[in-house]
C-alpha cells in the first residue's frame, strides 16, 4: 500500500517538476487586448453595437461577451481583424449574411427644415448644409449609424441601401438572377 502511494506520489512529483519548469520556460506574455481592439474600431462612438461607445464595445469583445461582427460600420474588415486579435472564428469572406449591403442616410429635401440637428449629431461630418438650408448626405462618408434619423424633428431622414454606381457595380454571383436586373 505504502509502495503504491509512494509510487504515485513520486510520479506526480516528477511530472509536476517537469511541468513547472516547462511553464516557466515556455511562458507567453498575453498583453491586454482591449486597447488593441479599441484601436481597430472606428472610434465614432455611434452606438450601433449596443454598447456605450467604442471603448465599451472593445471591453465586451475582449471578454468574449460580444461577437467580433458587432460593428456594422466596421464591416467585415474590422470583424476579421478582431477575430485575429481575439482568436475567435473569423467571419466567412463571401457569404451574404455577414456583409450585408451597406446603408446610408437619405434626406427627403421636401421635409427638411434646415434645423442642423442632424448636422451636429453626425459622427463623420457626412451631412453638409447650414442653418435654414436643406441638408444633403455625402454617401461616401456616411456610415449609416442612425444617429441623424433619431434626432430629425420632421422625420425627413431615412436609411436606404447605398446606391449602386458604375464604380462599385460588379457582376452578381452566378445563379442569383435577382441582381442581374438591379
Amino acid at each position: 500500500m505504502i509502495e503504491a502511494v509512494a509510487t504515485m506520489s513520486a510520479l506526480g512529483l516528477g511530472l509536476g517538476t517537469i511541468l513547472g519548469v516547462a511553464a516557466r520556460r515556455f511562458h507567453v506574455e498575453t498583453p491586454p487586448i482591449v486597447d488593441e481592439i479599441e484601436a481597430q474600431l472606428p472610434g465614432t462612438n455611434c452606438g450601433q453595437c449596443g454598447f456605450p461607445g467604442c471603448r465599451g464595445a472593445a471591453e465586451a469583445v475582449a471578454e468574449g461577451a460580444a461577437p467580433v461582427t458587432l460593428c456594422p460600420p466596421g464591416g467585415r474588415e474590422v470583424a476579421v481583424t478582431l477575430a485575429e486579435i481575439t482568436g475567435a472564428e473569423p467571419p466567412g469572406s463571401g457569404g451574404t449574411g455577414q456583409d450585408a449591403e451597406p446603408v446610408v442616410a437619405f434626406i427627403f429635401e421636401d421635409h427638411c427644415t434646415g434645423c442642423t440637428k442632424c448636422f451636429k449629431r453626425c459622427p463623420t461630418d457626412a451631412i453638409i448644409g447650414a442653418a435654414k438650408q436643406i441638408h444633403t448626405v455625402v454617401n461616401d462618408a456616411c456610415i449609416g449609424c442612425d444617429a441623424c434619423v433619431a434626432v430629425c424633428p420632421t422625420e425627413a431622414i431615412i436609411l436606404r441601401t447605398k446606391p449602386r454606381t458604375l464604380r462599385n457595380w460588379h457582376w452578381p454571383k452566378p445563379g442569383t438572377p435577382a441582381d442581374a436586373t438591379l
Partner: peptide, 27 residues
C-alpha cells in the same frame, strides 16, 4: 468577376473605414 467585384467592394469598405476614423478624429 463577381468575386473580384466583391473583393474590391470589401477593399473600399476598408478604405472607408480608415476614412471614417479620420473623419471622426477631425470631428
Amino acid at each position: 468577376n463577381y468575386a473580384k467585384g466583391r473583393l474590391a467592394f470589401q477593399q473600399s469598405q476598408k478604405h472607408q473605414q480608415e476614412e471614417t476614423k479620420r473623419l471622426a478624429e477631425t470631428r
